[in-house]
Amino acid sequence: MPLDTSTTYPLTRLRLDGRRWNELRLLQAQISTNPASSGSSYLAMGNTSIMCTVHGPAEGRRGEAGGGAGNAAGAVVEVDVNIAGFASVDRKRRGGGSDKQSSRIATTLKAAFQSHLHTYLYPHSTISIHVSVLSADGSLLAAAINACTLALVDAGIPMPGLLCGCTAGMSGSASTARDPKNDELDPLLDLSLPEEQELPSLTVGTTTAIPVGEDAMDDDEDETMKVSLLNMDAKVHYTYLETMLAVGIDGCTQIREILEGVIKGSNKIVVPRSDIL
């Protein structure tokens, strides 16, 4: 699909949707959207919208991996991703089971949250996460990470910090070594679908480091971020990687603030705002 990101961007420094390189799309989120589950969330990043429900921690269903007894060391996280037929512009035909994209996202989410959550608190149990993609416009994995985090917070499952995801890319093909004197390419934050199809990008997920030792009591003014997930499908010259990572991590910090706002804001009914401060 010939799009004009690479031709117009150097001239205007504006992306297809009018954003500058370091701007996120509008991020809106809600938690506790589905009363029938332990935790649920709705998250929209631009035109990408995702609903996520969490069931558990509960006794695993019999006949599944782990033989119903589950893992004695801790809870098992199960992730099921469903990209709706109407999610993209043209309706996608699916044959049977699930497609490659959704199972890749599911595997990545499972690996990320299995190690992120304090699963040791719930031996012999299963935490099942169901992600429904209602509308897909790029950064699916990042949006799914954020939606899952919110739903898991809503379910009250302990975790060391919010796991936030964001994508970062380069504004050109970035296949040759970077020339520091004549740097033409800009890093881009939070890619939309047309950009994602055309440009190299990576998804980064960060969380806060668990405070240990002397720092544990410190006020977390300058929280150190820890990368806990990194996923890249494109090909890019290694000299650009550092820039992309830095931009991605910065995006995660911004998303983290928004998500914290959502979580604190949703408590208003229980605790009036003035009492929190």
Binding site: N34, A36, S37, A84, G85, F86, S132, L134
Partner: peptide, 12 residues
Amino acid sequence: LYIDVLLLSQPL
């Protein structure tokens, strides 16, 4: 016409 129906929670 493609009608895609998603049930968002377990069928109670």
